[in-house]
Write a protein that binds this DNA or RNA. Sequence first.
DNA 1: GTGCTGACACAGG
DNA 2: ACCTGTGCCAGCA
Length: 118
Amino acid sequence: MSSERTELAELVLDVADQVPPGRVTTYGLVAEAVRGATGHGHPRHVGTVMASYGGEVPWWRVVRADGTLPRQLRERALERYLAEGTPLTPLVPVRVDLERAVWDAPTQWRLPLADPRA
DNA sequence: GTGCTGACACAGG
DNA sequence: ACCTGTGCCAGCA
């Protein structure tokens, strides 16, 4: 079945949409989850998808590996974090406290793997 | 088909 | 804390 967006994009958006409020996941983890389901997917692709369709999902819950976001989005995301109580580091620059807020998609939300028993 | 771009990750300086 | 280079690969001109 053909999809307007790519299959990859659909999965990325799906994962992003599953992240609970107050928690976040990373581009790498999303890519890992998608990769488990499709065999394809890298952090770079996740970023590309988010840039195109991020508006449809809670984009601020997908952060970089060190808990930061792109400059342009940093301020806007900070508002969201304060609003939903996302754990932030007390140090500057403010970034998400991944140790407490990370939501491991591959573990918390099992994607339909090609071979569940593998 | 060819080449550049990118909401990345990681290592260095 | 910042910027640069490298590896990665789908999407687009």
